[in-house]
Simulated assay, not measured.
Amino acid sequence: MPETPDAAATGPRLVLATRNAGKLRELRELLRGQVPGLDVDTQVIDAETAGAPDVVESGTTFEANSLLKAREVAAATGLVAVADDSGLAVDVLGGAPGIFSARWSGRHGDDGANLSLLLAQLADIPAAQRGASFVCAAALAFPDGTAHATFGELKGSLLAAPRGSGGFGYDPILKPLGSDLSCAEMTSEEKNSISHRAKAFAALLPHLVDALR
């Protein structure tokens, strides 16, 4: 196992390669209490706090993008880095928006515009054919470039209109299989117990615990 930087008790130990406040909050909760001695509120920071540069997501898959981000942020900060690349895969669109989920409307991170465009594109699609999944690839990287990647999926169907005020991204329109709620209507605990990101990070957790011991 590669050596990790020697950090002070209250100093950063892990960088999440994101500037998305929602993802940082969600991933902190997923990690809370899972890594012995890790204070997620002070020792898990985002890329902006760490002074890491923006990483161009030039990969053609979720896994490639997550590994790219984790490796570049780890190299830039000298800390263990975690990244994820996630999005929505719609069956009738052949898996799109996919890796373009955050910029489907042409404006990166504009959740409202992305939702509106996708719903308009699916306006004539009946409920029985609105299958979709949230997918996530998570990656853990060390400053020397060593890395691990894992995958998670949350299957469901797309609503005809947004519901709920929680979450972020496409949460208001994805209804997980077996649930009557959209992801945005769930509590954070309910969502984290089944989410694509939770599944990907659960698989990554043993590597992360080893890295931060």
Results as ranks from 00 to 15, higher is better:
Ser101Arg: 01
Ala132Cys: 12
Ser133Pro: 07
Lys175Asn: 14
Leu119Met: 08
Arg107Phe: 13
Ala141Leu: 05
Ala123Val: 05
Pro97Lys: 07
Val135Thr: 09
Gly152Asp: 02
Leu115Thr: 10
Leu122Lys: 02
Pro176His: 05
Asp180Arg: 13
Arg130Phe: 10
Gln129Thr: 14
His108Tyr: 14
Gly178Ile: 12
Ala120Tyr: 09
Ala127Leu: 11
Asp91Trp: 10
Ala184Glu: 02
His108Asp: 14
Pro176Thr: 09
Ser182Gly: 12
Ser133Trp: 08
Leu140Cys: 06
Leu154Ile: 10
Ala123Ser: 13
Asp171Gln: 08
Ala184Thr: 01
Ala149Tyr: 08
Leu115Asn: 04
Leu117Lys: 09
Gly109Glu: 10
Gly95Phe: 08
Trp104Gln: 04
Leu117Arg: 11
Leu118Cys: 07
Ala147Cys: 13
Ile99Ala: 04
Phe100Thr: 15
Leu115Cys: 08
Cys183Phe: 08
Lys155His: 15
Gly106Ile: 10
Leu119Cys: 06
Phe134Ser: 03
Asn114Val: 03
Phe142Ser: 03
Asp110Tyr: 00
Ala120Asn: 12
Asp180Val: 13
Gly166Asp: 08
Leu140Arg: 01
Gly164Leu: 04
Ala160Met: 15
Pro162Gly: 05
Pro162Cys: 09
Leu158Trp: 04
Leu158Val: 04
Leu117Pro: 00
Gln121Trp: 13
Leu174Asn: 00
Leu117Ser: 09
Asn114Gln: 09
Leu118Lys: 00
Ser101Phe: 02
Gly95Asp: 07
Asp171Ser: 07
Ser133Val: 10
His108Arg: 14
Gly94Tyr: 11
Asp110Ala: 07
